[in-house]
Write a protein that binds this DNA or RNA. Structure first.
Length: 404
RNA sequence: GAGAGCGUAGCUCAGCUGGCAGAGCAGUGGACUGUGGAUCCACGGGUCGCGGGUUCGACUCCCGUCGCUCUCCCCA
C-alpha cells in the first residue's frame, strides 16, 4: 500500500472506467441539447443556508451527509450534495427569469455526500441534472421522463421508471394529517427510524424498506386519493402524455423523495439489476419563490453518472490508433510521416522504442495499435510508407504528395 | 449510524494443524537490426497493510489500528 492515499470515498477515474464515464456523459449531454437545454456551470461550494433552505433542514442529506465547514470569516460553507439548490440560487441571483419566458438549464459536475461508500456510491460522485423553470404544464414533466427513458434505452440499461404525485400546498397537509393518524394507530409495528420520521416527515415512512413497516403501510391512505383538483388533473394528464409517448412506467403510490422541495410529480428510474436509483427527479413549484425569486414552477431530474457507467456494459469504441514504426536511420522521416498523418486527423503514436521491427510490432500490439506505419530506409528513399493492418496483417504501400 | 468479508510481487491470487515467500499474467533482456498476436530461454521484482501480544520461531494464532469491498439505513 502506498504512503499516500486518496480520501475515503474519493476516487481516481481513468482508463476503461473513464472512457465509459465520458461516453455516458457525452450521450446525455447530446440528448439534452436535442431538447434545447443550455448548460450552466455553477460553483462546487455554496453557503450552507442554500442547501438547508432548499433541500430541507430535516432531510438526511442536510442533517448528516454534508461536507460543511467554516471559512476564515466564520461563515458556513458546504460542498454541494446535489445540483438543484445551486441552480435555483443562480437562477434567482442572476435574474434568469427576466431573460426568457422560461429557462431550460442543465449542469454537470461532482457532488459530495458524507456517506458510507459502497457499490455505486461514493463520497464524491458526478451528476448531470436538468431543470426547467417556468412552465407548470404536465407536458414538461412528461418530456423530462421521456428524456430519462431515452437515456436509459440508448445506454441499454434496464430500469423501471416509477411515477407518483405528492401533491401541493393545498392538498398535502390534509393527506399528511390522515397519514399521521393512520401511523399513530399502528405505532407499535413501525421500526425505530420510522417512529422518529413519523413526526417530522410522515411521508418518508412510506418508502421505508423494513419489512414490518412495508407491511404496516400497505393499507395506508394514498396521496393519490387526496390530490386536489389541480394536482389530480396534472397527474392524470402526465400519465396520458406518457402513454402517448409509449413510455413504460409504474405508478408507485409509495414513491417519496428524500428532498423536501418536491411537489406534484416525482419520479425515479430504478435499476433492474441492483437495488439503486439511477435517475430521479420531480417538480418543485415553490422552491424558486422560497429562494427569493418570483413564483416560478419548475421540474428537474438528476442522473448518477457513476451508476450509469457501472451498468453500461458495452465496449466504448475509439478512433483507430496509428503507430509510426521507424527502423534504421530514418527518425527525421518518421517525424515527418507522423506529422502528415496527424494533419489528416488521425490518432497517431510515434514509437518511442528503438529496436528490431519485431520488437516494435510487439509493442504496437501491446498498445492496441490498429495500423502500424512502417518507415524504413526503403520507404524514406522512395518517399512512401508501408501501412500494416494489425488485425488482418495486410500491408499496403502508400504514396503521398511531397507538398507538405 | 448498524453489520459482514478481505488486505501476500505492477495485476489476479495460492500459501494446510505456526518451520527458508510462491504461481500465472504483466515487465526487462536475449540465438532475430524488415514483420506482431498464447514459440523458446533468462532475469528483475516483497517491510505478507501497520502496531503490539503469544511463541524457540508468526504471512499463519490473539488484540488493536488503518484501508478496501459489500449489505442495511439513506440516496444519484
Amino acid at each position: 500500500m502506498s504512503e499516500f492515499q486518496s480520501v475515503r470515498g474519493f476516487h481516481d477515474l481513468f482508463g476503461e472506467d473513464l472512457k465509459k464515464f465520458r461516453h455516458v456523459s457525452n450521450l446525455i449531454r447530446e440528448k439534452l441539447k436535442l431538447y434545447n437545454f443550455e448548460e450552466i456551470v455553477i460553483p462546487v461550494l455554496e453557503y450552507l443556508e442554500v442547501f438547508q433552505r432548499s433541500i430541507g433542514e430535516a432531510t438526511d442529506i442536510v442533517q448528516k451527509e454534508m461536507f460543511a465547514f467554516q471559512d476564515r470569516k466564520g461563515r458556513w460553507i458546504a460542498l454541494r450534495p446535489e445540483g438543484t439548490a445551486g441552480v435555483v440560487r443562480a437562477y434567482v441571483q442572476n435574474r434568469l427569469y427576466a431573460l426568457k419566458p422560461y429557462a431550460k438549464l442543465f449542469y454537470e459536475g461532482p457532488m459530495f455526500r458524507h456517506e458510507r461508500p459502497q457499490a455505486g456510491r461514493y463520497r464524491q460522485f458526478h451528476q448531470i441534472g436538468a431543470e426547467v423553470f417556468g412552465p407548470l404544464d404536465p407536458l414538461v414533466d412528461a418530456e423530462m421522463i421521456q428524456l430519462v427513458y431515452e437515456i436509459l434505452s440508448e445506454l441499454n440499461i434496464k430500469a423501471t421508471i416509477e411515477v407518483n404525485s405528492i401533491g401541493c400546498k393545498s392538498c398535502r397537509p390534509a393527506y399528511r394529517e390522515a397519514l399521521s393518524l393512520y401511523l399513530n394507530a399502528l405505532e407499535r409495528r413501525l421500526c425505530e427510524v420510522c417512529l422518529d420520521r413519523k413526526g417530522r416527515n410522515p411521508l418518508r415512512v412510506l418508502d421505508c424498506k423494513v419489512p414490518t413497516c412495508k407491511e404496516a403501510v400497505k393499507d395506508a391512505p394514498k396521496m393519490l386519493d387526496f390530490l386536489c383538483k389541480e394536482c389530480g388533473e396534472h397527474h392524470f394528464k402526465l400519465k396520458e402524455y406518457l402513454n402517448t409517448l409509449s413510455i413504460p412506467y409504474r405508478e408507485n403510490p409509495n414513491l417519496v423523495r428524500g428532498l423536501d422541495y418536491y411537489t406534484k410529480t416525482v419520479f425515479e428510474a430504478v435499476s433492474a439489476d441492483m437495488n439503486i436509483t439511477l435517475i430521479a427527479g420531480g417538480r418543485y413549484d415553490y422552491l424558486v419563490e422560497e429562494m427569493g425569486g418570483p413564483p416560478t414552477p419548475a421540474v428537474g431530474f438528476a442522473v448518477g453518472l457513476e451508476r450509469l457507467s457501472m451498468l453500461f456494459k458495452e465496449h466504448v469504441r475509439e478512433e483507430p490508433l496509428y503507430m509510426v514504426v521507424p527502423f534504421g536511420d530514418v527518425l527525421d522521416y518518421a517525424l515527418f510521416i507522423a506529422k502528415v498523418l496527424r494533419s489528416e486527423g488521425k490518432r497517431v503514436e510515434l514509437s518511442y522504442r528503438r529496436g528490431s521491427l519485431k520488437k516494435q510490432l510487439e509493442l504496437a500490439n501491446r498498445l492496441g495499435v490498429r495500423y502500424a506505419v512502417l518507415v524504413g530506409e526503403e520507404e524514406k528513399a522512395g518517399g512512401f510508407y508501408t501501412l500494416k493492418d494489425m488485425e488482418t496483417g495486410e500491408q499496403l504501400r502508400v504514396e503521398f504528395s511531397p507538398s507538405l
